[in-house]
Design a protein around this nucleic acid. Structure first.
Length: 473
RNA sequence: GCUCCCUUCGUCUAUCGGUUAGGACGCGAGAUUUUCAUUCUUGAAAGACGGGUUCGACUCCCGUAGGGAGCGCCA
């Protein structure tokens, strides 16, 4: 039997869950869930200055919104500091670590000097073999890992392939600060080991860390997990993703009106593919996703494609699902929060009725709401300039003709209304467009809208007739 | 500066030595249509450059150029 796969997502709670983190989490989640494994969460909150409780909440919230549920309770790294210290001490005892009495000032000077001479700015090993008895008085030592000076450290990465580091290029990293607190590379190794992580899938900015961490695993005699370092997402200009690009929190994508299912689909296709498949269901993702298929070059974030994917998922989504998504996101929407707070149950029902016509005309929920504005507009409607143009003398005449027909309509349903209007148009020698456009203007205040008969129905007989009368005079 | 990684249409990608280099987004044209969309048809659009290896390279190797990541008592 093969051991169960255990992956983890390990964000540091210094901000929201950004889009790159969301993709990393998605990959970890898919890999574990697709193979009957576990997906764990670890909050790397050892930076006490920058870690915040709201950030933790935002990250958990973002993961949940994306549907990336984790197993067990999240592990808080800071709470495990004592365990990390223990390991540091055992490394010291086994000769795999040593005390370093260099001060930060000295280290800065060392790096400056190295840089000035064109050498790599690394620790020179001053205290590696020096007797602690020579320690300057009053200096609290940090503890450094004694990394091998010769040979190579090889990472057989599931994404990057075999990556070889010469050990001489890796310096002795600090594992315990002079104040006794553990540092990242130690904590990560200890936690991943203790949590039973079998596969580490993370951003490739950690690739060199993998080499150093690998050495710690070796020193402790622990088995190494499998590594997979995925390329970072870049902005449209090819540079690192920044806030003005798309390095927003996933909450921002939610508020912009994207569906979690669409974001997931877009994210998985960024740097990963399965033949020519574009729209991939959750089941297919779980079945198909694998590490070696992840590309090694960084992908650029493309809002237009995200919008296209989102539009697709909106079109195929059940209307009630869209209503539910809207109810969740609208209060946070900059443009529509106000409207949302005023909407009655009747308004929501009306919106649901108009949904088939609305959803195929929008790329995001925000766009959808913008085009649904006519449903909630108050008489007499404000006319957009393009709509006003449709209400000239000819338009008003057409409107009056339509009104005569509609007022006597017995069945207020789209097919019946359409039949009645077509008959009327033929009798009057008008093209349907000459009738529909003024109607559209009168009913919505705009020159574009969902199908005009659907608009009539979703507005309801009384409101629709009233709006037409407003403009027919 | 040093270490590591990357390089197919504008963008996301397929190809795993032999293809008219395929798909998707976006863009152009056309069809459908009551507007706008949707949908359908269709067009333009790519192997960074230079050397090898090979009967044959987008695919393998080397170099160049360009891009990225890392080099903290941050994570």
């Amino acid at each position: 039997m093969t051991a169960q796969i255990v992956t983890r997502f390990a964000p540091s709670p210094t901000g929201f869950l950004h889009i790159g983190g969301a993709r990393t989490a998605l990959f970890n989640w898919l890999y574990a869930r697709g193979r009957g494994g576990k997906f764990l969460l670890r909050i790397e909150d050892t930076d006490r200055e920058r870690s915040t409780e709201p950030a933790v909440a935002a990250i958990l919230d973002g993961l949940q919104w994306l549907g990336l549920t984790w197993d067990d309770l999240p592990v808080y790294q800071f709470a495990r500091a004592r365990r990390h210290q223990e390991i540091a001490q055992s490394l010291l005892a086994s000769g795999h670590a040593y005390r370093c009495y260099c001060t930060p000032t000295e280290l800065d000077a060392m790096r400056e000097a190295a840089r000035a001479q064109g050498r790599p700015p690394v620790y020179d090993g001053t205290w590696r073999d020096r007797d602690s008895k020579l320690a300057p008085p009053g200096v609290k030592p940090s503890i450094r890992f004694k990394s091998p000076r010769t040979g190579e450290t090889v990472i057989d990465d599931q994404v990057q392939g075999r990556v070889i580091f010469k050990n001489e290029s890796l310096d002795d990293l600090i594992i315990l600060r002079s104040d006794g607190n553990p540092t990242y590379n130690l904590s990560v190794v200890v936690d991943d080991h203790d949590m039973g992580i079998t596969h580490i899938i993370r951003g490739d900015d950690h690739l060199t860390n993998a080499a150093r961490q690998s050495q710690i695993y070796a020193a402790m005699g622990w088995t190494r997990p499998v590594f997979a370092h995925v390329p970072l997402i870049h902005g449209p200009d090819g540079a690192k993703l920044s806030k003005r690009h798309g390095a927003l929190g996933v909450d921002a994508y939610r508020d912009m009106g994207y569906l979690p299912v669409a974001l997931r689909n877009y994210l998985i296709r960024l740097g990963w593919s399965h033949g020519d498949d574009e729209f991939i269901s959750a089941e297919q993702m779980l079945k198909w996703f694998d590490l070696p298929a992840i590309g090694r070059s960084p992908a650029r974030f493309d809002f237009l494609k995200l919008a296209n994917v989102n539009g697709y998922y909106m079109r195929v989504a059940p209307d009630t699902d869209l209503i539910a998504a809207l109810r969740e996101m609208l209060p946070n929407s900059a443009d529509h929060a106000d409207l949302a707070s005023r909407m009655t149950d009747a308004d929501w029902t009306r919106l649901l009725g108009a949904m088939p016509g609305l959803k195929e005309r929008a790329k995001t929920l925000v766009e959808l709401m913008a085009s649904a504005g006519y449903l909630f507009a108050v008489r007499p409607l404000a006319m957009e300039p393009e709509a006003q143009k449709l209400l000239g003398p000819d338009g008003k005449a057409a409107l009056q003709g339509a009104l005569n027909v509609l007022e006597v309509a017995t069945v207020w349903q789209a097919p019946a209304l359409e039949a009645a209007m077509k008959t009327h148009a033929e009798a009057a020698g008008l093209k349907l467009g000459k009738l529909a456009q003024p109607l559209r203007a009168a009913l919505t205040g705009r020159a574009t809208s969902p199908g005009i008969f659907d608009v009539l129905v979703s507005l309801g007989r009384d409101e629709a007739l009233a709006r037409i009368r407003d403009q027919a005079v």
